[in-house]
Design a protein around this nucleic acid. Structure first.
Length: 215
DNA sequence: ACCCAGGTGGCCC
DNA sequence: GGGCCACATGGG
């Protein structure tokens, strides 16, 4: 446990042994991953979960149905997620785009090469780098490491690297890890597990498994 | 009454 | 190319 954590891969192995496998993403279908990835932006997962329940209860958690739903109705379902007006419009537009360009078939979109898939997702309003990588990794199941606020915070506390901008940090992790979808999936989930329980905005890591390594 | 949560896009310099 | 800002609900 007091082995030094000098690289992302070492951190991954430590977190896996400490917390055990997380089996992410918490969703039943790839489309549910897409929806969840958008709805959880800058909000606790619990809130996104409520909205997804609303969609399920209304029997509209479906790409075609959302693209045909009125914005007003969609907004009501998405209320718990915060920024619900933005998110409703963006989610509806994204669903409409996939309906039109891929005949509502997510698999056809996900068949593209990782690099061009990422570029295409990033071109859509409401999908930034973290959301794009979450969709590629957990819905399309291709290796694209996800960086989030916890990842940056943990890297900073552990002083793993200096450049915390999204793309350089993503490369830093990918260069350290075996290029393996299951490892990428687990590692990001483990980082969230660590982050939401122990690595909050304030630099206090009492009882944190990494406390000896934190500043 | 605060602060924060698995970001993103638009604007300004 | 980087630093602000709006977006909005729910839980501690």
């Amino acid at each position: 446990m007091s082995q030094s954590l000098t690289s992302p891969y070492e951190l991954y192995k430590f977190l896996l042994s400490h917390f055990g496998p997380q089996h992410w993403w918490p969703a039943e279908t790839p489309f549910e991953v897409v929806v969840g990835a958008i709805l959880t932006q800058q909000v606790a997962w619990k809130n996104a979960e409520k909205a997804i329940e609303n969609l399920k209860n209304a029997n509209v958690l479906d790409l075609c149905k959302i693209s045909n739903l009125s914005l007003e109705k969609l907004e009501v379902y998405l209320k718990p997620t915060g920024f619900y007006r933005q998110k409703a419009k963006r989610l509806k537009d994204i669903c409409s785009y996939i309906s039109k360009e891929y005949n509502s078939n997510l698999k056809r979109l996900f068949n593209k090469e990782t690099c061009s898939l990422r570029a295409e997702l990033l071109s859509l309003n409401g999908i930034g780098p973290e959301t794009a990588d979450s969709i590629i990794l957990y819905a399309a199941e291709k290796p694209s490491f996800v960086i989030d606020a916890y990842t940056k915070r943990i890297c900073k506390r552990l002083q793993l690297t200096d450049d915390l901008d999204y793309e350089p940090l993503k490369k830093f992790f990918e260069n350290s890890l075996p290029k393996n979808v299951e490892i990428y999936k687990e590692f990001h989930a483990l980082i969230v597990e660590l982050g939401k329980n122990y690595c909050k905005t304030k630099p206090v890591c009492k009882n944190c498994p990494l406390s000896k390594k934190c500043i």
